[in-house]
């Protein structure tokens, strides 16, 4: 009985803590934010223990930064390429990095391809683009096809190895938070495996799922609603692009070592 009440006590404390944690930030932004949606991301989701040494070197030397985004259809919004997050990432990076630096983000959409199928095409893709950084958005197709999570993990493993041996830094990006399809697509095994592989290879993982869920919970975006036009998608992608730029710059400029 003692243990039960202790458990309940812990639960209550945590529930309250979670409530506070998830409370929308009471911050009044200037009117500048009119075009840009308010979409704060907690620092912890923008930091990574893993680093991007190549990108760090390039930024230090002020050389041109070539980034390749490899992703499925959730890396695009229909035909409006300029509004999808890769283009927004490019814009945000150009804003934040020294203006003399050339930043180029290109996209290779691999629609309807599982991680395993993407890995088969990697050598050709990497040889053609020679990027310093590959942002690999994956998991969605595998989750929709319920590919065996172990196979998925193996494929991501191989993919990272291939990207690294082609001389690129890697950032992994996981699935979108999609509340409407939660009853139809089982997402957790793929999130877990991506987290595990990222840790294993010391690769920064951009947790798109957690970030979008945070926005939904905070009321920044109503991702549940069915009747949105293209506008919502544009705003979400803009926010993802900007968050991703902070994430990449953060991982390339690691903060002073944390004390253990």
């Amino acid at each position: 009985m003692r243990s039960v009440s202790l458990f309940m006590g812990l639960t209550m404390t945590l529930a309250v803590a979670a409530g506070l944690w998830a409370a929308p930030p009471a911050r009044a932004e200037e009117a500048q934010a009119q075009t840009q949606a308010v979409c704060d991301v907690p620092e912890s989701l923008l930091q990574s223990e893993s680093a991007l040494p190549k990108v760090a070197d390039i930024i230090k030397g002020g050389r041109p930064l070539d980034i390749l985004v490899i992703g499925s259809r959730s890396s695009s919004i229909g035909a409006s390429e300029d509004f999808a997050y890769p283009a927004r990432l490019q814009a945000a990076l150009r804003e934040q990095l020294p203006s003399a630096m050339a930043v180029n983000v290109s996209v290779e959409l691999q629609a309807r391809k599982s991680a395993d199928e993407v890995v088969k095409d990697l050598p050709a893709l990497l040889a053609a683009k020679r990027p310093a950084l590959v942002i690999w958005q994956t998991g969605t197709v595998d989750a929709m096809r319920s590919v065996d999570p172990d196979d998925f993990r193996g494929a991501v493993d191989d993919g990272i190895a291939a990207m690294r041996s082609a001389g690129a830094d890697v950032v992994l990006m996981n699935l979108q938070y999609s509340p409407r399809t939660e009853t139809m697509i089982s997402v957790p095994p793929y999130l877990d495996n991506m987290r595990a592989v990222a840790q294993e290879h010391d690769v920064p993982l951009f947790d798109r799922f957690a970030i979008m869920r945070q926005w939904n919970d905070n009321g920044d975006f109503d991702l549940f609603n069915s009747s949105h036009g293209i506008e919502l998608a544009k705003r979400v992608h803009d926010c993802i692009g900007r968050a991703l730029s902070k994430f990449v710059i953060g991982a390339a400029h690691p903060a002073p070592q944390q004390q253990n």
């Binding site: 959730s74 229909g78 929709m144 409407r180 399809t181 139809m184 697509i185 069915s226 998608a233 979400v236």
Partner: peptide, 13 residues
């Protein structure tokens, strides 16, 4: 009933 360009990929399910 659901049409959201943000999730056009997930709707493939």
């Amino acid at each position: 009933s659901f049409e959201n360009p943000l999730y056009s990929e997930e709707m493939g399910i």
